[in-house]
Amino acid sequence: MTSLNTAPDLTGRNLSKRRAFANRTATLLIGLCVLIAALPLVLVAWEVVTRGGSALSLGFLTEEIPRNYRTAGPGMGPAILGTLAITGMAALIAIPVGVLGAVYLNEYGKNKPLARFIRTMADVMTGVPSIVMGLFIYVAYVVVIGEKVGFGGSLALACLMLPIVIRSAEEMLRLVPDELRQASAGLGARKWRTTMSVVLPSASSGITSGALLAVARAAGETAPIIVTVGLTYIYKPDLFYGENTTLAAQIYRNATQPFAASQERAWGAALTLIAIVFLFTIVARVIAARFAIDKR
């Protein structure tokens, strides 16, 4: 590359027309792919912000949902509460189980056949359609207790979150340097102490970030909710009693109606839901970024 008397011509000016054309066309097409992907995002953002923005007001966020599709005016309060409560309960179930499962995979199971099998099955579980999780909880929980309740939705969402939490937490545990474990063991700590007071704390920000991304994903789920949670128009803070509702379910329900009033509520709910989901995502990103700096 260096110390040639006559520098070779690396500019590509001597490229044959056919090769230069193929290269330029390929680059252009590859760039086009990015535009194709950006287009729907811009469309969605534009439509949701402009149409949802006009529906949004303080009343929209707090008032109860009108019972009639045709009734104009605000109200998504119960759905917002339902989204936060059902998703929050799902997180309370899925995150501890998922993190402990990740501890098993990375600290105990490692490359044992059982651990490898669980790892593969967790990957497979991320691909189980959300509607199937809904049907599962319907059969295994809603039918058993005899009514649709908010907690059923939490269980379904928890099942969806579990494999995501396990796999992301395991990635984070793997980043914890072995020296920390050895140092702790050298001080006489047993494995469970080492795990609880050394390994998990040093991976905590990464685990939190992954868990929040799973929560964000779950908050936007619709299919399991309509199967297990039912419908309500009023505030239902008790997840164990009576049918409930979420923003996603309300969007689905209102979008299928031909009435302007219900469609406007659907747009408002969409903007609210996206705001909630993005908030979780951004917080997760910020935590993850800080984690990355810690590692340096």
């Binding site: 990015v34 992907a37 469309l43 996603a248 689905y252 979008a255 469609q263 989901v277 993005f278």
Partner: peptide, 21 residues
């Protein structure tokens, strides 16, 4: 951009598709 595309809930895609597209 790609990450944002992944975070948009599917029901919102459906909403835009059915009422706009």
């Amino acid at each position: 951009v790609i990450d944002l595309l992944a975070t948009v809930p599917s029901v919102v895609f459906g909403l835009v598709a059915v009422l706009v597209v």
